[in-house]
Nucleic acid binder design. Sequence first.
DNA 1: AGTATTTGACCATC
DNA 2: GATGGTCAAATACT
Length: 338
Amino acid sequence: MDHKRIVHELTQGKEFAEQLKIHLKNPSSSHETQEILIHNILNSYENTLSLLAICGLTTHGSNDEPHLHGEKGITNLESQVSLTESPHSEDSDPVFQDIHHKDSGAKRKSKDGLEKWKKQVKVRGDMVFEEALDDGYSWRKYGQKDVLGAKHPRGYYRCTYRQLQGCLATKQVQRTNDDPNIFNMTYHGNHTCHPKNDTCSSLPSPSSLSPPSEIQHAPPQNQLLESPKIIQTFQAEYCKSINENLENPLLHFPSTSNNNFVFPMLNSTFDGNRTPSFISPTTSESTHFKSIVAVESELNDIVSATKSTSFYSDDVALPFEELEFGNTFNFDNSIFFD
DNA sequence: AGTATTTGACCATC
DNA sequence: GATGGTCAAATACT
């Protein structure tokens, strides 16, 4: 029984409720802000119930696996990443199921046998650009190409450990035409790599933020169930931070010194046109810029069932909502470092 | 010097 | 032939 976590979840839920109360009184408050707060409140409930389920106090959830929603817990970035995962990859991931009300179709694979899915990422604010597109894995860019109908070139990335470990995971990053802060990420194949100096070897395999469901280590379907996704996610981030010897782990992973990770948030409504001037469409996707990150949302019906050679349509019109957050985002990561 | 990125060329598919 | 994806040499970065 982990009272600490439960109290933490309830406390966060209360804080979100209080924020929602304030927003409801504010006529200028956006609908999206209110929705995300509601979403976070519900997540707090869900997480609490999941924790209680672990203790056998409830039978929360449709399966026995506790699934922390962790949206707030991970950072808003990860939260929205979750929201952007494509539905078909959610089958084995209960976290995404109730978020998307996803279809219950079987996993789809491309003709080469590798799974493929998309998500949409929005970058904004005051955070390192990489953070927005960071999915917990180490990628190496191997190509860039102008794509027909796209204003911006498409970047091609493969797993850094492709040669060393034969990991075949790749991803494509495509800046959208409408909003240069929005990126369409297309993942192809799951990670099978085990990063060097994996200091988390004692932990369950680091799962990814990117492959939303069956993450990287085979057999994916089984391993996914080994630990709550949020914990897996943090393990992946934690390992990555250590492995990369990040100079400023605060940017990448919550500090362990005070167990509080303060995630700065925009004070004002995001201006979609506020693209940092030093971002060039032709520069590498790994170019840094100061921004806050929010990864947004929904990937619905990105599967093109009519194409036999590809499960996804490249021209996916996704509903996208602007999101706002509070001025600060406090994350207590102590639950992950007990 | 080792590693990562850039970019033109090449190849496969439609 | 057009297009998308990958290769690999050149270049940049640390």
